[in-house]
């Protein structure tokens, strides 16, 4: 007797060939924006009420400011950010040829400071690095995310995917358990989103400031009572890369506002 169950499984497999278990289909991918209330959406939509824009303004001033013993500003090499930085953040983290690994936008800014400006690196999550990366990423607002397309990044995307699927911490939860399998439900009254990183660095009302994707990932790890990776750790960068590649094609929103 042919098992009907076997036929059902075979049909399922035939209709969803490229999908791994738990992955969200392309047309069902949703930005965190769609999980927010109308007030928070309105705050993000209006550039004069979006507090993230304060950082973009500061970042614009820093872009023009001469730094380090090189006495060069970002603008001296890159010119007008409106054209030179357009779409750049949508492909970060990107592969760095010298380091042979992916680097985040924040790390790229600090590499530029070290290699071209002879300036000391800006500390992670400091006001200036967030302002600069918000200013650069803002130039990509509306651009489709393409991070992870570079074939050299393949092993790192895989590493990130592995970390995303791996259970960790005292609560023994993987990212996928909430953000692939249980989005649209609630956790302690807050909506669980798909975890699509479309608007970083973003302004979280809870933080009362702008924060990076790494900060967000670290607080999720603390939430499942795992030891969070350090800022700039290769594991965090790989996770960031996987998340960006998972949001492939979604438009950038920087600076987004989230509750």
């Amino acid at each position: 007797m042919i098992s009907w169950r076997a036929i059902a499984v075979a049909t399922l497999l035939a209709t969803t060939p490229a999908l791994l278990a738990g992955e969200i289909p392309l047309d069902a991918r949703r930005s965190g924006y769609s999980f927010m209330g109308p007030d928070t959406r309105a705050m993000q939509d209006d550039d004069t009420s979006n507090p993230g824009m304060l950082f973009v303004l500061d970042g614009e001033a820093l872009w023009m400011k001469k730094e380090g013993s090189g006495d060069k500003a970002c603008a001296d090499c890159h010119g007008d950010a409106k054209s030179s930085m357009k779409g750049v953040a949508a492909r970060y983290p990107a592969f760095d040829k010298a380091l042979r690994r992916p680097v985040t936008l924040d790390q790229r800014i600090n590499l530029c400071r070290a290699n071209h400006q002879d300036a000391p690196p800006l500390p992670f999550e400091s006001h200036d690095i967030l302002a600069l990366s918000a200013f650069v990423a803002h130039q990509s607002r509306g651009a489709a995310i393409t991070a992870g397309d570079d074939p050299q990044l393949k092993p790192f995307v895989e590493q990130g995917r592995h970390l995303f699927m791996q259970r960790e911490g005292q609560l023994n939860l993987a990212c996928t358990n909430c953000h692939d399998d249980n989005f649209d439900k609630r956790l302690a009254g807050s909506p669980i989103t798909q975890g699509q990183p479309t608007g970083y660095p973003l302004y979280r009302l809870e933080w009362q400031t702008l924060g990076s994707l790494e900060r967000r990932l670290r607080s999720c790890m603390t939430g499942v009572r795992a030891q969070a990776y350090d800022y700039g750790a290769p594991e965090l960068v790989a996770l960031e890369l996987y998340l960006m590649s998972r949001a492939h094609g979604m438009p950038m929103e920087t600076p987004a506002v989230r509750p």
Binding site: D46, D47, T48, S49, P51, M53, L54, F55, L57, D58, Q208
Partner: peptide, 27 residues
């Protein structure tokens, strides 16, 4: 410090207008 101000550039006499201000401060 950076501030964002939203005032309509033009208005008719007698119109009620909304003014929105946002400034950066750690509070």
């Amino acid at each position: 410090m950076a501030a964002l101000i939203n005032v309509p550039a033009k208005a008719k006499r007698g119109d009620v207008i909304e003014i929105r201000t946002l400034t950066s401060h750690i509070m």
